[in-house]
Amino acid sequence: MTLYYERMWPTPWIFVITALVIPASILVFLPINPLAGYITAGVLYVGIVLFLSLTSPIISVTHETLRAGQAAIPVEFTGETRSFLAGEAVLERGVHLDARAWLVIRGWISPVVKVTVTDPADPVPYWLLSSRHPDRLEAALAEAKTGAPADR
């Protein structure tokens, strides 16, 4: 049973910004062939939207496993979890970051959750995960570890 599921979709402003490829393509092709510009603009924008959508990582928690992006770890090897918001999140993604950490972060999602790895054979000290709902992610991990529903 899935206790937590989040797909890190890009925010709407990312799609607005990438829409700037439309006028840029039209301007490039306008002297050659306006129709080619419109077609290229449409194809490029659709391609960008598809790429952003299909490559959005997923974070999920079950009673057995924490999955983040391409990696998975048994819940029994997760330790303390702590969420960081605003300025603290910037510090965790920046100056406090350990180069060995497993990262699934996106710039358009500010809060992060730090999950300590307790497996002595794993060289990764912790996972740092972007989450729009850090409190729910922490609660799901606590529930997975204890087997009892956590206060949400």
Rank of each mutant, 00 (worst) to 15 (best):
Y5F: 12
E6I: 01
E6Q: 12
W9P: 03
T11D: 15
P12C: 10
L20F: 05
I22Y: 00
P23C: 04
L27Q: 10
V28F: 12
L30A: 14
N33L: 05
Y38R: 02
T40G: 02
T40R: 01
A41Q: 08
G42W: 04
Y45S: 04
V46W: 12
L52R: 08
S53F: 12
T55R: 12
P57K: 09
I58V: 14
I59Y: 01
S60V: 08
V61H: 03
T65P: 00
A68Q: 05
G69L: 07
G69A: 13
A71H: 15
A71K: 15
A72V: 12
I73K: 12
I73R: 15
P74V: 13
P74Y: 15
V75T: 02
V75Y: 00
G79P: 00
G79N: 07
E80K: 02
E80L: 00
E80W: 00
R82G: 03
S83H: 12
L85H: 09
G87Y: 15
G87C: 15
E88D: 15
V90W: 14
L91G: 05
L91H: 13
R93W: 11
V95L: 14
H96E: 11
H96M: 13
D98Q: 12
A99M: 14
A99Y: 12
R100A: 06
I105Q: 14
I105R: 11
G107E: 10
G107A: 11
W108L: 09
W108K: 13
I109Q: 12
S110W: 11
P111A: 07
V113P: 04
K114H: 04
K114F: 03
T118F: 10
T118A: 11
D119K: 05
D119A: 03
A121R: 13
A121I: 02
D122K: 05
P123T: 06
V124N: 08
P125Y: 07
Y126T: 02
W127A: 03
L128G: 08
L128P: 05
S130T: 07
P134N: 12
D135R: 13
L137I: 04
E138Y: 00
A139W: 01
L141P: 05
L141V: 03
A142M: 08
K145C: 04
A148G: 00
P149N: 06
A150Y: 01
D151G: 09
R152P: 03
